[in-house]
Amino acid sequence: MGVFTEHVVPTFGNILACAMLVSPFPAVLRLRAAGKLGDTNPLPYPMTVVNAAGWVAYGFTIANAYVIPANAVGFLAGVFFTFTAYGCAPKQVQDRIAAIMVAASAHIIMLGLIGCFALSREAAARMWGTSAVVILMIYYFVPLSTMVHIVRTRNAASIYPPLAATAIANGLMWSVYGFAVMDINLWLPNVFGSIIGVVQLLLRLMYGAKPTAAAGNGASALGTGAAAHDEESAAFAKTGVDPSG
């Protein structure tokens, strides 16, 4: 049981998370070819970079090889998505993307300096873990805001059931692993993420998918409508240990 929960589960969690990270590529490539954002909200892309960077740093600090792979993929993919969106965005949106990246870089540099020169290794690990969890929990407000809109409009077209189900499975895997290694930074955000996934599926069952001009093709992979884009980006970021997802 120990081998299964501490090695097999996180291995499959990384595979599942990486598969989710690959899913936005077709939509991003279409965005790159079109040269314009359309109704795509690009801000989750730099947030994905920030989220993944925090979890990679945490993985390095606690020397846990399972936390790093999917988040490293998420970081690299997020950088590509961010640069693609930046090139297609108007100046005002470019400024927002740049602000997020600069602020996040300053945050990571500051934590790195504090961890290296002011804290013990254990305290630094707690600091990086807390930072990663806070960033990830903030990121979860994206699907939460989308769910409020769904209840108001009684239309769940923006929810992509296969993605939500995958996010639930991924979150459960990392929750099991987090409990196995007794790391609250791993199981807490994944339990919360799995609950969000369950709520999304329940909303889809309750309200169904009613075609509209904005959300008519909410089932496409990341980026068809702003709501669908945000939901998939949030699942993408869940990869935060959610390297987990």
Rank of each mutant, 00 (worst) to 15 (best):
F4E: 02
T5S: 05
V8T: 00
P10W: 04
F12H: 06
L16H: 03
L16R: 05
L21M: 13
V22S: 03
D39V: 14
T40W: 11
P42A: 07
M47D: 01
V50N: 08
A52D: 04
A53S: 13
Y58C: 09
Y58D: 01
T61M: 07
A72W: 08
F75I: 01
A77P: 04
T82I: 05
C88D: 09
A89W: 12
Q94Y: 05
R96M: 12
R96I: 11
V102D: 13
G115K: 10
E122H: 00
W128P: 03
W128A: 07
I135M: 10
I135Q: 02
L136M: 12
M137F: 12
I138A: 14
I138D: 02
Y140G: 07
S145A: 11
T146R: 03
V151M: 03
R152A: 11
L163W: 12
A165D: 02
A165I: 00
I184V: 09
L186V: 15
W187F: 15
W187P: 08
G193C: 07
I195S: 14
G197Y: 05
G197L: 07
V198H: 04
A214M: 09
G218C: 08
A219C: 10
L222G: 13
G223Q: 00
G225Y: 02
G225E: 08
A228K: 07
E231H: 15
K238S: 14
P243Y: 00
